[in-house]
Amino acid sequence: MGLVRLKIRELAKAKGWTIKEVADRAGVNYNTVKSYARHPGMSMVDLTAVQKIACAFEVTIEELIDVVEE
């Protein structure tokens, strides 16, 4: 099973947003976004939340996800 990392911190920094602003703009629970932003590798994510976060950044899911282990 592979591990993925979401590039939330990098994208938020590029836009000048806080993690709270990302959560608000995406309509995703703050604790979920904070958790995704902190983990260097996750095996499971809520794809609905990931899609909403990607839309908030105006990027594709592929641009948001970084595969860290296959």
Results as ranks from 00 to 15, higher is better:
R38Y: 07
E62H: 12
V28P: 05
W17G: 01
L6H: 11
E21P: 08
V67S: 06
K20F: 08
K7F: 01
N29M: 01
G41W: 08
K13W: 00
Y30K: 10
G41C: 08
E21M: 11
K15Q: 13
D66K: 13
R9D: 14
Q51R: 14
A37K: 00
V4G: 02
G16Y: 10
G41I: 08
T32S: 12
L47Y: 13
A12Q: 01
E58D: 15
M1P: 11
Y30E: 09
D66G: 02
C55P: 00
R25M: 01
S35G: 02
S35T: 13
R38I: 02
G2Q: 08
A49E: 07
K13A: 15
K52M: 07
H39G: 01
L11T: 05
T48N: 12
N31P: 00
E69H: 13
L11G: 01
M1T: 12
A37W: 12
E21R: 12
K52D: 04
G41R: 08
T32I: 14
H39K: 15
Y30W: 13
E21H: 01
V50K: 04
R5D: 09
G16Q: 10
R5H: 09
L64K: 07
V68M: 10
T60G: 13
N31S: 14
A37V: 10
F57R: 03
N31T: 15
E62W: 10
R9M: 05
L47N: 07
Y30T: 03
I53V: 14
E10T: 09
M44A: 13
Q51E: 14
A56S: 14
A26N: 03
M44I: 14
V50M: 03
